[in-house]
Design a protein around this nucleic acid. Structure first.
Lengths: 222, 222
DNA sequence: TAATTAATTCTTGTATACAAGAAAACTCGT
DNA sequence: ACGAGTTTTCTTGTATACAAGAATTAATTA
């Protein structure tokens, strides 16, 4: 962001944290990172403060930086906000989607839907992301779009934990279809409600979700 | 956040930016700030990157930091998100407010309402803030609360621009009353809708708002 | 032997020095 | 006199050196 070298480190570390390569709780030694990237500690520190501001790492005074650990409560809270942000995106999209954006949205849904029933989970994940991003974009609120993408990105390592329940994809795609239809119909209230429910983790799905949580989620909040 | 000295600078600068003491577009010279606070440039830089992450300042590579300028479009977008976040807070508050929180909410509203008709605008502003914060808190979603407060804080310098239209306070307090009632009644849908509309700048109010904007808002986004 | 305390080591936080790029000022030419 | 190009100055970005606090280890005592 700020500096030349530091700005190169941020996305690398971010990626490693988001993908789970760097696990929550891992100590981030400034000197080690400096050596690894071939720079001094200064840009490393700047990168770390940046990541701390984004909530990806926690810096405890005089005690160094660690990859942020998220408690179950935090995670639930964030998912709840996520569901609502996406809901707002869908609502605004239903009101503001442009003629040019309409076919793109439809195409993204169909591409995604075509993968249901196959074992191409990663492709589905990818297509799903595209679809959601298109909805954010169609809200025509750049700030909302940015916030929503950021939160989604931050939740992504935890989202991956959601098990591949048989039939989940079918239901997910059905929900997508309903959402896309509501947006294209200009039914903003419905689009919002459907999206909220789609993203929200509730009922049996939530139990499944909790049961897949690795041990480190039991800790207190970061 | 990170460091001892740096963490002392952040709230000071933040306050000055938020209150408008440091106007959007103002250059923030590292050396000057370092001299002013009696520290070296290192903690100043750290404070600036932190503020940049919060969106309060913009750091252009090799060209220094300036207080962030916000375009009208950005401002509208942020207010729109704000309205929705507050709406979600109210909805969740209606579902989750505890017996202990109920009288506090009622009291906050009444304290605020008692100031209507007087010229104690600053006190009203204060009471209004307390009331809204109580609603955020009653959502029992710490992440949502934090995000909402942060956005409110970031919008506060611009919010102050809202002129004191005669009768505005009366209407505002009436709206507060309806919102508080909806929350206490557990009517989450109504609480959300009322809050959204309360915060949203629309119709004639929006025109009034736009007309009060100082020249620097005409610039492009930061 | 275990526990508490002291000392050492290691890591973070700050300052300063140096390098590189951008802005401003000055000079030269038309 | 005005504009383009060059030079100078100033500010930012990075590295390193130093200081201070935390953690670990060793030593001493009960």
């Amino acid at each position: 962001m700020t500096t030349s070298r530091a700005s190169e480190l941020v996305p690398v570390l971010e990626q490693e944290i988001v993908t789970g390569e760097l696990k929550p709780g891992t100590r981030l030694d400034e000197t080690l990172l400096a050596e690894r990237f071939g720079v001094s500690r200064t840009p490393v520190r700047e990168a770390l403060t940046h990541l701390a501001a984004a909530g990806l790492v926690v810096i405890r005074p005089r005690r160094g930086a660690i990859v942020a650990t998220i408690s179950i409560r935090d995670l639930m809270n964030m998912f709840e906000v996520m569901a609502n942000l996406e809901g707002v995106c869908a609502r605004l999209a239903a009101r503001r989607i442009t003629p040019e954006e309409r076919p793109a949205l439809k195409a993204a849904f169909e591409a995604c839907d075509a993968l249901v029933g196959t074992d191409r989970y990663d492709d589905y994940y990818e297509g799903n992301l595209t679809l959601h991003n298109l909805i954010y974009q169609a809200s025509h609120n750049a700030y909302l779009e940015k916030q929503t993408r950021e939160l989604r990105r931050r939740l992504s390592p935890h989202r991956r934990l959601q098990v591949r329940i048989p039939g989940r994809l079918i239901k997910s795609s059905e929900e997508h279809g309903a959402i896309v239809r509501a947006i294209l119909d200009g039914n903003s209230d419905l689009a919002e409600r459907l999206t909220r429910d789609h993203v929200t983790i509730q009922g049996e799905r939530f139990t499944d979700f909790l049961s897949t949580l690795p041990p480190h989620y039991v800790q207190a909040s970061a």
